[in-house]
Design a protein around this nucleic acid. Structure first.
Lengths: 100, 100
DNA sequence: AAGATATATCGACTTTTTCCGATATTCCAA
DNA sequence: TTGGAATATCGGAAAAAGTCGATATATCTT
């Protein structure tokens, strides 16, 4: 777990927003609904992109940044990639701060 | 408290190191001793600079970055500026992560 | 197989960050 | 009050990050 990379990933307004949006998708994405029956696989790129106001390529890049450092997980289902928070890493990050 | 600025300040190897060095100065700075009698005002710039291996100007700048976001406090005593951790902000940061 | 849709990647450009050397400022001591 | 030591600030070169449009890839539908 690369601390600097983690903090870098968090050092951006939009990426921080994405993380909080993903905390309660029902609230932040109007037409959101858990895909694949009841399994909550996350939110697809398009929803996030439209809410952010940035371009598709930028958001795709940002999500891959968050994924690279483990802050979100990615699940490909058909033509969609669903991203959701990785609570484990986020919790670890909390501990990391304590040991700072 | 600007979250992005905080994470930016932490998104650098040297600045992170400084923060951990300041956690136990006795351990990290050979000739360290609390100044002003018993009051522990922190570590002066020169010590940190020499330990870091970077230039004086860079470290001065880094310390001011950490100070600007409240991660350290600065105390000028004569020609020295002593920096020490601001545990309050660091604790707040921990909570911030929880609400991420 | 072809077109449409969702996402990823590439190349380019701009802005920010990193880190330096040089210079300025502040304070102490002789 | 002048010189030296500690720190701060300024200006700049190089590297990294932000952001875009264009294009590639993967998948679904027909």
């Amino acid at each position: 777990m690369d601390q600097v990379a983690l903090f870098k990933a968090l050092a951006n307004k939009t990426r921080l927003q994405i993380l909080t949006w993903l905390k309660s998708p029902e609230e932040h994405f109007p037409d959101y609904e858990p895909a694949c029956g009841s399994a909550d696989v996350g939110v697809c790129v398009g929803y996030i992109q439209r809410k952010s106001g940035l371009t598709q390529s930028t958001i795709s890049e940002y999500l891959s940044t968050l994924h690279r450092v483990g802050l979100v997980s990615a699940t490909r289902v058909g033509q969609w990639t669903y991203y959701k928070r990785n609570e484990e890493t986020i919790a670890t990050l909390g501990n990391l701060i304590d040991t700072l």
